[in-house]
């Protein structure tokens, strides 16, 4: 018997521009095993048609924003009401000692750390968790605490489901988010790994991993990741100015240095000077970074960059060769 509130005429959600649109256009969500496992957790809750609705919300871009902090996900989802609903998903984070235990196991196979750093999650990772008596994904309903401001009484509702699906796609791209969610960010993770393998003549500082883990969990509102990243925008954007006020470099007064020397370059110097080369594969640098997180642009960023990089190289080469003076007749 379906509860009566499901008989409400299915309301159309308000149309959204520039929301986060799922990459998956049909069928399943999640390309990698870890993303699938995440979805499995959701689907084990047995919420029926809400799953399908959630999927279509995710695909239509009804989710406006997602913020992932340690143990906490907060999102805005545009439903049928005029103001978006607020969704929160809380997940139990692992304790410091649990992380320490894990780290010891992980150090045995550097591939785990290396792959994670490179944006991939090895499948055997789950078994490492299991060996340590832990689990990577939330297992029981108790591990999760979800909430939505919508009138639907079911938890999870379709709004939560939509966020859930989109997170799966993000895990695809950046599996470290899972760790983040479980209480450890990249920096913490690396230092945890570092301390698991003591250096010959460096003092080990026991329990720092735990400390870090705890700190991370205690992390308040954060856009993403580490405390450093939280202030990153402001810091980075002002970096340059700040740096030089710290180390002024007065003009040297030596007359030759002041006005510069006549530089007659020898062949040998020419050899070692910067060379210019147009790489055969365009945009290798941004491509090596992978997809941009939560990309909401119309076109794929990397495709767009490839085109731009390809066009810019010949201009750079002409400048290098000194040919980019105003073309005749211009």
């Amino acid at each position: 018997m379906t509860p009566y509130w499901d008989y409400y005429a299915p309301s159309r959600p308000k149309e959204v521009k520039g929301g986060i649109k799922a990459k998956s256009k049909r069928g399943k969500f999640g390309e990698n095993w870890w993303a699938r496992r995440w979805i499995e957790v959701l689907e084990s809750f047995n919420i029926g048609a809400r799953l399908t609705r959630g999927k279509s919300y995710a695909r239509r871009g009804q989710v406006l924003s997602i913020k992932i902090d340690t143990g906490l996900v907060r999102a805005k989802v545009q439903g049928s009401s005029s103001t978006p609903y607020s969704v929160t998903i809380k997940i139990r984070t692992l304790t410091g000692s649990e992380w320490d235990l894990l780290a010891k196991k992980l150090a045995q196979k550097p591939i785990f750390a290396a792959k994670l750093l490179a944006g991939e999650m090895p499948e055997e990772l789950e078994s490492v968790f299991m060996e340590a008596g832990l689990s990577l994904f939330p297992e029981k309903i108790d591990d999760l605490d979800t909430d939505c401001s919508c009138p639907d009484w079911s938890v999870p509702c379709k709004h939560i489901a939509a966020v859930y699906y989109l997170m799966a796609e993000e895990f695809d791209r950046y599996p470290f988010l899972l760790f983040k969610l479980r209480g450890v960010d990249m920096d913490d993770f690396m230092s945890v790994l570092g301390h698991a393998e003591p250096e010959e003549d460096f003092e080990e500082e026991p329990g720092e991993g735990a400390k870090l883990g705890a700190e991370a969990r205690a992390g308040t509102e954060s856009v993403f990741l580490s405390p450093k990243a939280r202030t990153a925008p402001v810091l980075v954007l002002e970096e340059e100015e700040e740096a030089y006020t710290l180390s002024p470099e007065p003009l040297p007064l030596d007359l030759e240095t002041f006005w510069g020397k006549v530089f007659e370059r020898t062949e040998k110097e020419m050899e070692t000077r910067s060379k210019a080369h147009i790489p055969s594969v365009p945009a290798a640098l941004p491509k090596s970074l992978g997809k941009f997180p939560f990309w909401r642009g119309e076109e794929d960023l990397l495709d767009e960059l490839e085109e731009i990089y390809r066009q810019a190289s010949p201009v750079g080469m002409r400048v290098f060769l000194g040919e980019e003076a105003k073309a005749e007749g211009e």
Binding site: W259, G260, A276, I278, S313, M317
Partner: peptide, 30 residues
């Protein structure tokens, strides 16, 4: 051109090499 002027031309060559070699990324600045 003074040597300080010529030095800038050399610096521009450097920038040209970086553009040709695609050693740059899109970013945001204040």
């Amino acid at each position: 051109p003074g040597n300080d002027f010529l030095w800038w031309a050399d610096a521009l060559k450097f920038a040209g090499a970086m553009a040709a070699g695609q050693d740059y990324l899109p970013d945001v600045r204040l």
